[in-house]
Design a binder for these strands. Sequence first.
DNA 1: ATATAATTTTAGTCTTGTCTAAAAATATAT
DNA 2: ATATATTTTTAGACAAGACTAAAATTATAT
Lengths: 219, 219
Amino acid sequence: MVTLSEENYLKAIYHLGKQGSLEVSTNAIAEQMETKASSVTDMIKKLADKNLVNYIKYQGVSLTKDGRLAAASVVRKHRLWEVLLVEKLNFSWDEVHEVAEQLEHIKSEKLINELDAFLNYPEEDPHGDPIPDKDGNIKKVEKLLLSQADVNNTCICVGVKNSSADFLKYLDKHHIALGTSIQIISKEKFDESMTIQVNNTLINISKTISNNIFIKKAL
Amino acid sequence: MVTLSEENYLKAIYHLGKQGSLEVSTNAIAEQMETKASSVTDMIKKLADKNLVNYIKYQGVSLTKDGRLAAASVVRKHRLWEVLLVEKLNFSWDEVHEVAEQLEHIKSEKLINELDAFLNYPEEDPHGDPIPDKDGNIKKVEKLLLSQADVNNTCICVGVKNSSADFLKYLDKHHIALGTSIQIISKEKFDESMTIQVNNTLINISKTISNNIFIKKAL
DNA sequence: ATATAATTTTAGTCTTGTCTAAAAATATAT
DNA sequence: ATATATTTTTAGACAAGACTAAAATTATAT
Ligand SMILES: [Mn+2]
Ligand SMILES: [Mn+2]
Ligand SMILES: [Mn+2]
Ligand SMILES: [Mn+2]
């Protein structure tokens, strides 16, 4: 049995572990979870006792096989619920996260499998993030950051790195959604801001923006 | 802010309060919640502090207006989720309760309103229980117990008093569902068992069974 | 190499929700 | 009316999960 709180820690370690070193630091977890380092240490010990993380004092943690599976299951649920909210319940992509944070902890194998089927086995959530399968495997897709695209290229928005409501609303305002075609018109050497064309409109975006939009090159 | 545990107590008091006296006893709550009377007393004090129940020591509790609204909201959510599970996610009526016990605590106004709309504003859950509206009002329907029906009457199953999986599976086995037509063939004086006809089949049922099936008289 | 800084852990406290055992209040029976 | 039984509350303890402050360890800079 994994508690709600344990699930949240596992998820945090899971996310931190795949964008950097395998060993995740106590402070990194504390920051991600908006909690204190001492609380993290306490919880890490519990997770280590349950064989969900590998832990050596002062050396950080990594997920065990069991831990990774448990974490992937939470992520799977989170993302499937987000799809339900957007596809069936009229939520916009900036509204889903908070609710999915609650729904991801509902415990029912049948529920999540039926949800998966009902949604027609989606491969991505509303932010372009991949949905792990039952065994925790995710389909790796080639994703570049818009900031890395070259001038004159045309590309397609396939995801967002940052899913905060503020950022998503910014994208809405400029009519950028998953699948939107973006053409790189020019790039400023000085601050790496870009002028891009979306739906025949030119927009100037900062490096901060282009750094948070995932794209693939248009065929 | 009402915690998950508080919501469960409010719901228990709500259910107990409408099938008997207005004042609900500590022991009754303890039994319903499978907890100890001392735990109930502790919680009652918290609920009284939050003005969710009226409480006089040794005299039992009743819900305040706020308490009743909070309780009805939980019941509303519980039953709407049960409808989703049965109508859209292939759950049978004996499988929904456990999951709905978890889902009823998800906090999102929008979610529950959209769910309501998505399900086409159902008035009853899969067990024939009425779904409170946003203001906590429920449509009272005339329901009799099958045990009270007279010989030779034909009636329609409109609900179950007991929603345990065992009982619901028993009904499935005998092809009794909501809307099923039931004819009272005979009634035994001694133990009040009945012979009923369902889909051209005769079944003998004990008083315990007939006491847990709600019916209305067929037109 | 040693002092300083940053990170991590420990020790001790708090809140929520639960429990057992004992005390207090209420209900029931003679 | 009084003894007995039942119900309810109180007192004290415990586990989970979080926090602060202090101690221990590791990293960094001269
Ligand atoms: Mn999310
Ligand atoms: Mn997402
Ligand atoms: Mn139910
Ligand atoms: Mn029900």
